[in-house]
Design a protein around this nucleic acid. Structure first.
Length: 500
RNA sequence: GGCGCCAUAGCCAAGUGGUAAGGCAAGGGUCUGCAAAACCCUCACUCCCCGGUUCGAAUCCGGGUGGCGCCUCCA
């Protein structure tokens, strides 16, 4: 089965055909490092993380590039406010981003280029555009002449005449036409600047992605990704300058991730409702957050809210609890070849079929559900008597979970460890007194053993008051913080990051 | 105003020409001293509305209504 992917450029799903057999180059617009990333950024990066993981799973040799934009107006502004050096500020947020990315279990890209380290490539590219007559100098700035590149707007499919009417020219810009955009900006006092043929200055917004993608993936490459809002102007301009310079097709497939909103409200700095990734991760498990992101198709809008998050976490708990039961049952044994119950392999092929269809992770999760329901049935209500068959089937299911885990970046932890960590966090968050709970649990056990069920039930009620639920299992009574209470993720009225 | 997206059960959400995945919630059951967890069963003759194409449409086309995004910094 071929992989089909929705290409913004063609407006439809296409079969993914690599430029070079077996290999794929993918460039994803990374963060502009002037602040912490927010959960919207995190959704986009998680979506592409899974795209890369799945392409590798399907056997492609993937080269994954995600840049850091560390030279930019926003960084300069943020540095001015804090009195810090812009380069130092950017470097600091690169490190913060790396911490966040790692906490979210995002794969490290093969290359994470920074603008500040690719000035020579950028200068060469701008000079080439000048040579080709599609760029012009104006008072120390250099602009791309949109009118000289006829396919302009083929990605965003906009009407040039209408755009000209609405286009805004910033004060101080020296454009010939309103739609032209800066390739190089003349240095202003106090700004980071590099020596260029046009005098001291710095790169414009879009040129860095053209220069760095060409450097690491070539002038033509397979997939370019980013958030929906980057289609215009960022990707449109990247596309225009890249193709104008090289005369070759730029990215073959353009993938764009849908927006995440805050229960209907757009998340934006001006509304003061930005949720930082690290704040979200302080309240919700990283894998649960990934699960939440993956529960809606990457191109559709997704609404961030406490209910969805606690659902996601409850689901992860169900998965891990089941894995714990499977592992306890198998105890590391390899049942060896032989008959299995039903068609346990079917889940993996369902998973692949969903992922093949434009990385439909939400659809793929249905197959994952099937695996867990089947495993629980085998353990709790075995439909076959032969224990060897049960265990062999469980072993097959467990192996499928391992494979799927690597693709989705979920369920990669040891079940016991994950469950213990979650319990500990809930205990802390709810201020549960472990000692007191354990004493009550023991008292109830004693009462139960004495068949004093009235007392046992009273103690259960008392525990419930403490937000503790108990379960009697063959290996004794276990207790858990009550699940139904959800805790809100803090919303920050502060700077969020831009991705470009 | 221009461009584009979305509208599927109480809620979340797949499905884009062949007769509605999955999750949550709810009801019933098995299990349990009682529970919990787990499992089983039930839960959209129907996919915003109106036309059209088709043997056949939630899926395609036209129109309408509602919501959203981009067009200015934005994942």
């Amino acid at each position: 089965m071929p992989i089909r992917v929705f290409n913004t450029l063609s407006g439809q799903k296409e079969e993914l055909v690599p430029l070079e057999a077996g290999k794929l180059g993918i460039y994803v617009c990374g963060p502009t490092v002037y602040s912490f990333v927010h959960i919207g950024n995190a959704r986009t990066f998680t979506s592409f993380d899974v795209v890369v993981r799945y392409l590798r799973y399907r056997g492609y040799q993937v080269k994954y590039v995600r840049n850091f934009t560390d030279v930019d107006d926003k960084i300069i502004n943020a540095a001015r406010e804090s009195g810090e050096d812009p380069i130092a500020l950017a470097a600091r947020y690169v490190e913060e981003f790396r911490r966040d990315a790692s906490a979210l279990h995002l794969l490290e890209p093969d290359v994470s280029p920074k603008v500040s380290e690719h000035i020579p490539e950028i200068l060469r590219l701008i000079r080439r555009l000048e040579e080709r007559g599609v760029a012009y100098r104006s008072d120390g700035d250099v602009y791309f002449a949109v009118g000289k590149y006829s396919p302009y707007a083929k990605l965003s499919k906009r009407n040039l005449e209408d755009m000209k009417a609405g286009a805004r020219v910033e004060v101080g810009e020296q454009k010939r036409e309103p739609l032209d955009f800066a390739l190089w900006k003349a240095a202003k006092p106090g700004e980071p600047a590099w020596e260029g043929p046009w005098g001291k200055g710095r790169p414009g917004w879009h040129i860095e992605c053209s220069a760095m993608s060409a450097r690491y993936l070539g002038e033509s490459f397979d997939i370019h990704g980013g958030g929906l809002d980057l289609i215009f102007p960022h990707h449109e301009n990247e596309l225009a300058q890249s193709e104008a310079a090289s005369g070759k097709p730029f990215a073959k497939v353009w993938m764009h991730c849908g927006f995440l909103d805050l229960e209907g409200a757009k998340m934006s700095k001006s509304l003061g409702n930005v949720v930082r990734l690290r704040d979200a991760l302080s309240r919700v498990d990283a894998e649960a957050l990934r699960y939440f992101f993956l529960s809606t198709h990457y191109r559709n809008p997704l609404s961030f809210g406490d209910k969805s998050l606690s659902d996601a976490e409850a689901r992860m708990e169900y998965f891990y609890e089941t894995l714990r039961k499977i592992d306890a049952r198998l105890k590391g044994k390899e049942p060896g070849p032989g008959p299995v119950h039903g068609e346990p392999q079917k889940f993996l092929s369902d998973f692949e079929a969903a992922m093949d269809d434009d990385f439909n992770a939400a659809g793929a999760l249905a197959a994952v559900s099937g695996i867990f329901a089947a495993a629980n049935e085998l353990i709790d209500r075995p439909p076959v008597k032969d224990k060897a068959v049960v265990e062999r089937t469980l072993s097959v299911l467990r192996e499928q979970v391992r494979r799927i885990s690597r693709v989705l970046g979920l369920l990669e932890d040891a079940p016991e460890a994950w469950l213990a960590r979650r319990k500990e966090r809930l205990v802390k968050e709810r201020g549960i007194d472990r000692g007191r709970v354990e004493a009550l649990v023991k008292a109830r056990d004693d009462a139960r053993r004495a068949k004093d069920f009235a007392t046992a039930d009273r103690l259960r009620a008392e525990l419930k008051e403490l937000q503790v639920e108990i379960m009697d299992t063959p290996s004794g009574t276990v207790w858990w913080p009550a699940r139904e209470i959800s805790d809100s993720v803090p919303v920050t009225d502060g700077l969020s990051a831009r991705i470009s």
